[in-house]
Design a protein around this nucleic acid. Structure first.
Lengths: 173, 173
DNA sequence: CAAGATTGATCTGTCAATCTTC
DNA sequence: GAAGATTGACAGATCAATCTTG
């Protein structure tokens, strides 16, 4: 992970537990660099396409897509935040913007006032439907069509394993 | 890619070229969702660790790491920007901050004043060396140790293919 | 005037309160 | 008081100039 020069130095460094570090093997190093580059450039490309063609960010699109899968195009803010990998605070800001554009509206849950329902409007739905083909084309073009079916399956497994590690740390103690 | 509900609607939509869209197969859909979640959560986890333990962002760490690999810990701003997947503007702001902390300094190229050299200081190098083990541990823990050697190799190939697609679009015309 | 680099305005996300409801 | 949700202040990235050098 970067810094072969730092590696040499750390290998001879006195304290700070540097001695028990297992550095990356060359295959790991190259995999890591490629993955990091992809994780920067791919989201960026998706952002550009969606912004240009649909004036939406990827999270905004994702939020609308999640809502479209629900009865009445409705979901609690907290659940929507979890599904879009966003903090509640971020989602709140984001939905406020979509609300100003008329794509979503909010209502407190009549049964339990602590909850807020995010409700996609018909206009929001139309916008999503109009935006979907272009976004999908980009995903196909940059990822799915670049990979073999075996690689797509491997990608799912790999992502699943990494996500399991990530989830493990979330509830410390 | 999201919106199965939108898929149904788009399938019956009249115009706008929605008819020629090839939607994602179920295996593709699940791979895509897992990958997207990973691409959000993994960078975030790395940011948290580095920020907490070394007061560095991932890009900042990456920039220092790239500098550490060069003779005299020196590189042109434009080259460093390319290697860190950052825009020149972003790097300029970023280096300014690192400069204020004494980790880097800048000098115009004596031979060609258009170029600027970014030079990592000894203090910056010491900080990088001190930060590397913790960052590496996180990468191992969340990714490398979660995967088989075959999966690591697959990840490199997959990333390479996607990066090739991404690179293809950069020079339009 | 083309390319490297910097700057300032703006937008978005994060963080740390705060508010509300149960 | 705990959980869902919102808010405002701040930090960082982008974009569109701008400046400089060759």
């Amino acid at each position: 992970v970067g810094a072969p020069a730092a590696r040499r130095a750390a290998a001879t460094a006195p304290g700070a537990g540097a001695g028990d570090v297992r550095w990356l093997a060359p295959e790991e190093e190259s995999a890591w660099r490629a993955m990091m580059a992809m994780m920067v450039q791919l989201p960026w490309a998706l952002e550009c396409q969606l912004q240009r063609d649909a004036q939406l960010s990827v999270v905004e699109y994702h939020a609308l897509a999640m809502l479209s899968e629900r009865e009445n195009h409705t979901m609690r803010m907290s659940e929507l935040a979890a599904l879009t990998n966003a903090s509640l605070s971020r989602l709140s800001h984001l939905i406020k913007r979509l609300e100003a554009r008329g794509f979503v509206r909010r209502e407190p849950d009549p049964a339990d006032g602590r909850y807020t329902w995010a409700i996609m409007t018909d206009e929001g739905y139309r916008h999503l439907v109009a935006s979907a083909p272009g976004h999908l084309r980009e995903v196909r073009d940059l990822v799915m069509d670049a990979l073999t079916p075996e690689q797509v399956a491997a990608l799912r497994d790999i992502s699943g394993r990494v996500l399991a590690r990530l989830g493990r740390a979330e509830t410390p103690g």
